[in-house]
Amino acid sequence: MKDDRSYWLDRSENVTMLYRGLWLIGVALVALDLFVSRHESIDAASVTGFYAGYGFFACVILVLVAKQLRRVLMRPEDYYER
């Protein structure tokens, strides 16, 4: 099937715009946190922006650790077939 249409997401400046928009939303959510009174059973969680920081660093650590795990765990695709 031939597809010569151009798509909005094919343009890298649009992707960059989405990326910046996501940062804006993130910053807005942390700012919103200042005005919301939360009732947390866990003390640490009541710090402003706790969830934002935790989510960001959890994912960075997750990916960095997983990347190192590849050195130990990764095998060729036909590993079990040989």
């Binding site: 996501l22 947390e40 934002a52």
Partner: peptide, 25 residues
Amino acid sequence: GHVVTQLQLLVFSALAFAVLMRTGI
């Protein structure tokens, strides 16, 4: 509170993905 915190968690997880993607890490 729950909606805001959950959205924070998710948006910043997505940002972590985007940053790692754009930096090639």
